[in-house]
Design a protein around this nucleic acid. Sequence first.
DNA 1: GTATGGAGAGGTTCGGTTCT
DNA 2: AGAACCGAACCTCTCCATAC
Length: 423
Amino acid sequence: FTEDEAQEFVQRVKRFLGLAEGDPVELVAEPKIDGLSVALRYEAGRLAQGATRGDGVVGEDVTANLRTLKDVPERLHGSRIPATLEVRGEVFMTKADFLKLNQDQEKDSKPPFANPRNAAAGSLRQLDPRITASRRLSAFFYAEGELSEPIAGTQWDFLEALRELGFRTNPIAELCPSIEAALAVCRKLAETRARLAYDIDGVVYKVNDWALQRRLGFVSRAPRWALAHKFAAERAMTRLNDIVIQVGRTGTLTPVAELEPVTVGGVVVSRATLHNEDEIARKDVRVGDTVIVQRAGDVIPQIVGIVESKRPKGAQPFAFPAKCPVCGSHAVREPGEVARRCTGGLVCAAQAVERLRHFVSRNAFDIEGLGRKHIEAFFEAGLLKNPAGIFKLHERRAELEGREGWGPQSTGNLMRAIEERRK
DNA sequence: GTATGGAGAGGTTCGGTTCT
DNA sequence: AGAACCGAACCTCTCCATAC
């Protein structure tokens, strides 16, 4: 975020590579587009598959929709076409196309989209590719995935190779001989971003030489050879109306701030996590305070701090409850732990429900059609007490089907989803 | 029988915190 | 150090219930 951190990044790179302070390391500075990342796979020069990449591993298959983008070539161009080629890029909507789309939405008396990124993400998830086609999405490509043969030795040459193959790349990327030059690019973009046709949220610096990139490698999922230098996030002031306590699967009590709704960075924010007891004390957040909020990474609402001069007279420090707000059991904080936990265990409805939610989640048993609300309702009605009960639900099918909001279709779907996981 | 609205689910975005 | 998990907002899709 600061220029110092960018300097530090290059120092780290040099140290890792065993280079001297004065040795040059070439960087490529590319604007960080505020869109959604996609991966395209080409086999024998033809588009075979396109997907979003939610967590960096797998994503939704949106091939048919991606085919409708003018920036996604159906066939690769040129004479040097690799047998298989995977490229990553960013799909986005220009500000002009976004405004036009919202005008059309208004004309059709449909709700407007909140911002270009959400509009782009929504457009790409359409079932009917014709709708996607009508939405005017754009894309820039900038990274390699699986490659059957090397097509470049540096990032800069790779971008050139991508263009020759028929991909659109961002024309304002720059090859920089040093971090100073890269920072100059960043400063220039910070000034001119408002005039760009699309939203950017920062600049990415990449070590140009792929051989060096390979030596640098990754720390968990983050490459050591790249740094995302983000612009300062937009901030807003609002009132903190209340602090409520949520109870998680393991009994952890998590405080959440309820805010007077305020628009920040294109969306309306009304809640923000305060993480834990210590965090509240550290920031000295009190009910009634005026707080400054931003969206971390331009996504997650976050309380940056308070405006002390606006504190109402008599505002008291927040007293963290010593009892679970759901079941009334003692909430204790073990020495060395940050969290205060409800000791109710399975007696606590919140914990039981959270356990069930976890059980059906995608990372566990992955049972479709059983979300928070239904689990809460089933628990309340005594239809479901623990994970094992899920596999006994079919015995109470008639009861289930009689419930409000449930019909033969939804019940059938749920039974099928459970049966599928029984094996 | 058909259109419309609402609720719920699930997926996407990302950073921060905590656990292993 | 690395992975898991959580949080908030938005969007689409599916299904049920209601109105006509």
